[in-house]
């Protein structure tokens, strides 16, 4: 069972049945199920989520990307700070990045006010944090490789040579 092919497949559509995945991989369904379990057990596959176009949902969801600068000291490293930030349920994504700032955070909330409050009261006051810059997401055009908005219709001829 080639795990990379299985991962490729899952990254395209994780909702396919084990049988359908097996058919596409030319593999045995039991082998696919076992490989899947192994990927999950080993922590390679951490979860499966839907890619949502929030513009099509009535409920308002506010998202922001936050740049965070930190200052390390002898006793505190990036990992320790990251662990503390990651625990907040408001934090959807947390990455250490190269460049002008240290951490990149994606935050989700019900309102701009709620997110502002979260950043100013929970993130900014952390002793190592020296600066935050919050970018509210105004619109999204592509998520996880999927273009949002109205897709193009298949306008090919229905039967062609």
């Amino acid at each position: 069972m080639d795990k990379q092919s299985l991962l490729d497949l899952l990254r395209r559509d994780a909702r396919e049945s084990v049988d359908d995945m097996a058919r596409q991989l030319g593999a045995d369904a039991d082998a696919v199920a076992a490989a899947l379990e192994e990927l999950e057990d080993d922590g390679v596959v951490r979860g499966y989520q839907a890619v949502v176009d929030w513009n099509k949902v009535d409920e308002e969801v506010v998202r922001a990307q936050v740049e965070v600068d930190v200052e390390l000291d002898r006793d505190t490293g990036y990992d320790q700070i990251a662990r503390r930030i990651a625990r907040f349920p408001e934090v959807g994504t947390l990455r250490l990045v190269s460049g002008d700032y240290d951490f990149f955070i994606e935050v989700e909330g019900d309102s701009m006010q709620g997110i502002s409050k979260f950043i100013s009261e929970r993130i900014a006051p952390l002793p190592e944090v020296t600066k935050t810059v919050t970018h509210f997401v105004m619109d999204s055009y592509k998520e996880e490789g999927i273009e949002l908005g109205d897709g193009d219709d298949d306008d090919r001829l229905s039967v062609s040579p």
Binding site: D154, R156, L157, S158, V159, S160, P161
Partner: peptide, 24 residues
Amino acid sequence: GIRRFFELAEEMDDVISLGVGEPD
């Protein structure tokens, strides 16, 4: 003969076509 099938298929709604000779 393809043309004839194309015309049959065009008359119907909700057709899933596996008759297409070009990439999607």
